[in-house]
Design a protein around this nucleic acid. Structure first.
Length: 469
RNA sequence: GUCCCCAUCGUCUAGAGGCCUAGGACUCCGCUCUUUCAAGGCGGCAACACGGGUUCGAAUCCCGUUGGGGACGCCA
């Protein structure tokens, strides 16, 4: 049997981090087994689903590199088929019309809560004669759940999970307006789409019992269920706005690389021995449900940042330059010239060793594009009168340098330091401050080479003491 | 309240009865390299929630307690 998995987000918010991981696991599982990965938008909540949210999901999936195999399905387009299934159940006597009003149901719940009883529909119309139906209530269709026995699910992650059938009430399949409920829709869609493995968040575990019974009522073979634990925020509570990034696009803006997020998300709740850094190709090869843990995981931005730094270091300079250029342009409010872009590209290798996010990378790269406006406090400290005098003398030396290669520059500066009987740091730090406006940067000789002779000398002149008398 | 699930360093995890004086990664702290900062290398702090069993032997199996999470909609 070929594997078919699916990711079925509801477009009521945005694609959040938990959803992204669920999507990733489904994608990996399908790819690992050479099966299909499908995307289904559960937009049946007409009131809350928005086009913007659908777009955010699609964009997020693409950005994360999770490609789906067929055009995505929109659940709302399949309402007729869902209803058809419900009517069939009705014909077979496996479902019935319920005329209980909303007020009546609310009262039922209140009472149950007050008496400390389970909050469930009591099946009052299950065997009642439809002739008794009130004329002013349009009925809903409810499924007849088994009254006794138990429902057992062999969950691929949680193991054997059992519930007493008394716990399962007769859920609504079709609303009064004839539209299908989520419970009906998922089951019908998963069945019709040929989904073999339902991999989803833990929060659906109790739904699985109900859905399992629906499959049985239709005489369909239930899929394999795998309920993966939820992701919590650093404080142990459910991930929410308070925890910073909400939608996937926020992670993108904050400068995380998709491959880094993929790797990090993979390691949240899945393990394979001691390996931490796992390329996507490797992940496809190694991933299986056996490695999925059963307890909830907390999201740790520090570790994500660490992974991100790793992938930034591994990324192509041209790709990083492209991204950084865009970030700098919006930061500077002007376009980056070809020459400046060339500096970014040449300086990228040195730059990328020192950044954990693309935002940081762009910040650190800014001096290559724009002359430092204000010195950082520490940099200002480096440029005392002594240092400025030193720079002036160095400037003269550099001015006469024919070969502007990194090695030639280094040689010249080192010799200068020797001649002045100074440690290299005494020359390098003021130099760094003058050239970058900061005390932190890539290797200073590399910076000089990348900046070029003209620009370097110009920046030096701006900070050096006026020529000695 | 009822039901379901979970429980190893601060965090993510390895561990499927003896290999565990519990391993790795992130964080933090030293040292090292060094023109700064990173990265790297070396070292350090730090955990089997608790109580009962089962067994020659339990982090690993069973039961309970505690703690955490989730679900109880004509939302998905």
């Amino acid at each position: 049997m070929s594997v078919v998995t699916r990711f079925a987000p509801s477009p009521t918010g945005y694609l959040h981090i938990g959803g992204a991981r669920t999507a990733l696991f489904n994608w990996l599982f399908a790819r690992h087994h050479g099966g299909k990965f499908l995307l289904r938008i559960e937009d049946t909540d007409r009131a809350r689903s928005t086009p913007a949210a659908i777009q955010a999901i699609l964009d997020g999936m693409r950005w994360l590199g999770l490609d789906w195999d067929e055009p995505e399905t929109y659940q709302s387009a399949r309402a007729e088929r869902h209803a058809e299934v419900a009517y069939k159940l009705l014909e077979q006597g496996r479902a019935y019309r319920c005329y209980a009003s909303k007020e009546e149901l609310e009262e039922m719940r209140q009472k149950a809560r007050a008496e400390g009883r389970p909050i469930r529909y009591d099946g009052r119309w299950r065997d009642r004669d439809p002739a008794e139906a009130p004329a002013d209530v349009t009925p809903v269709v409810r499924i007849k759940m088994p009254l006794e026995g138990e429902t057992v699910i062999e969950d691929r992650v949680q193991g054997q999970v059992t519930v007493n059938n008394e716990q399962l009430d007769d859920m609504v399949l079709l609303r009064a307006d004839g539209s299908p409920t989520y419970m009906l829709s998922v089951v019908v869609d998963d069945h019709d789409m040929g989904v073999t493995h339902v991999i989803r968040g833990d929060d659906h575990l109790t739904n699985a019992f109900r859905q399992y019974q629906l499959y049985r009522a239709m005489d369909w073979e239930p899929p394999v269920f795998a309920h993966i634990p939820l992701i919590h925020g650093p404080d142990g509570a459910k991930m929410s706005k308070r925890h910073g990034a909400v939608g996937l696009e926020a992670y993108r803006e904050q400068g995380y690389l998709p491959e880094a997020l993929r790797n990090y998300l993979l390691r949240l709740g899945w393990g394979h021995g001691d390996v931490e850094i796992i390329s996507t190709e490797e992940a496809v090869r190694l991933f299986d449900l056996d490695g999925v843990g059963r307890s909830a995981a907390r999201f740790d931005f520090d570790k994500l940042a660490n992974f991100n730094g790793h992938y930034i270091r591994e990324a192509e300079d041209s790709r990083l330059t492209e991204d950084v250029t865009q970030r700098l342009e919006s930061r500077l409010g002007r376009s980056v010239t070809a020459e400046e872009r060339g500096r970014l590209l040449r300086g990228m290798d040195g730059l990328k060793q020192r950044a954990k996010t693309l935002v940081e990378l762009a910040e650190n790269a800014e001096f290559y594009v724009a002359r430092p406006q204000a010195l950082t406090p520490k940099a200002a400290k480096q440029l005392d009168d002594d240092a400025r005098g030193r720079l002036a003398r160095l400037q003269v030396r550099l001015d006469g340098l024919d070969d502007w290669s990194e090695t030639a520059i280094e040689e010249a500066v080192r010799r200068f330091a020797e001649d002045e009987d100074l440690k290299l740091g005494k020359v390098a730090q003021p130099l760094r401050a003058a050239l970058t406006g900061s005390t932190v940067s890539p290797g200073i000789f590399e910076v000089m080479a990348v900046l070029g002779r003209t620009e370097t000398l110009a920046r030096l002149a701006a900070q050096a003491a006026p020529a000695e008398a």
